[in-house]
Design a protein around this nucleic acid. Structure first.
Lengths: 154, 154
DNA sequence: TTTATACAGGACTAAAATGGTACTCAATTG
DNA sequence: CAATTGAGTACCATTTTAGTCCTGTATAAA
């Protein structure tokens, strides 16, 4: 299905929740309550987001989590990467291309172009968009054509 | 990683192999040999592709698999859907939206827009592109902006 | 300084998806 | 009929995913 993992989904929801009240610090328990998910799971997700540099944490009483930077500067690709690792459609489109089938494959290059286009799409969607209850209304010029499809055009 | 499953990857490679010699019928064993993958696995993949209507099969001696329609009319989204089911990024962007968290979620709509944009992207890449050893050189106008991003613009 | 709060890190387990195999049946050709 | 080749099904092993728990550590407030 080319689906996000459930944790990634949670991460997006939690991030959106924080983004909607970005002044305050949010404790894990409070967030879990707000989004109606089990505390430990939310906690785990939050830790991953901190490690990825999307959130900052403050220990102790009155502590909690806050966005590391404005919601408009955090992308869907960032959130996905924080939980699942870098966006890549196939083994071989990752850094360590240790696929032994390169010789017989014959589609690797083109998959990588598609992969890149998808990544670009996900980078064009920010947390600010996701958190907004209104539909995404970017007047963005998606550079899709530029990137992959005209890479070696005629 | 938002990665394709390995079987989907195999499917793409096998489809590309068939597409490059689309006149002949191809036995499962022959294809497995050509792409250097285990026979039973390739066989399984082929059956899924037949069930999805992307290949047609012919039993008996001299039988094998052929494309059900021209490579230019088979999309990456078709191949992915054949193996993994419909492209959808989250539970709730599928047909049976049985997610109980709709109330507290607050990002569902926007995820769906992103999901739709990705699907459109994948539909714009055909098997003919994938099978071509040259880079994709579509002069395609990707309708991404149209679909999701300006859906409710301004 | 004590205490309550709240995050950090890691170990562990249960469940599910994935990938791969084997075996039997059905159809076609010659 | 015999050889070939796909169809269908059931099964198993592995990996991934999700979720829990426990112990440690930093911070703030009383």
């Amino acid at each position: 299905m080319l689906k996000l993992s459930r944790l990634t989904d949670y991460a997006a929801v939690v991030m959106a929740q924080i983004a909607r009240h970005s002044q305050a610090s949010h404790a894990a328990a409070e967030l879990a309550e707000a989004v109606q998910l089990p505390h430990p799971t939310v906690s785990k997700t939050l830790k991953m987001l901190v490690r990825a540099g999307l959130l900052v944490s403050q220990r102790g009483a009155q502590g909690g989590y806050r966005l590391a930077r404005p919601a408009s500067q955090i992308t869907a690709a960032d959130i996905i990467a924080a939980i699942e690792g870098p966006v890549a459609m196939t083994e071989c489109s990752q850094a360590e291309g240790d696929c032994e089938l390169v010789a017989t494959c014959g589609v690797a290059d083109n998959w990588q172009r598609v992969s890149l286009a998808m990544r670009t799409l996900l980078e064009s969607v920010t947390l600010a968009h996701l958190a907004d209850t209104a539909p995404i209304k970017l007047p963005v010029q998606l550079p899709i054509q530029t990137i992959s499809l005209s890479a070696a055009s005629a």
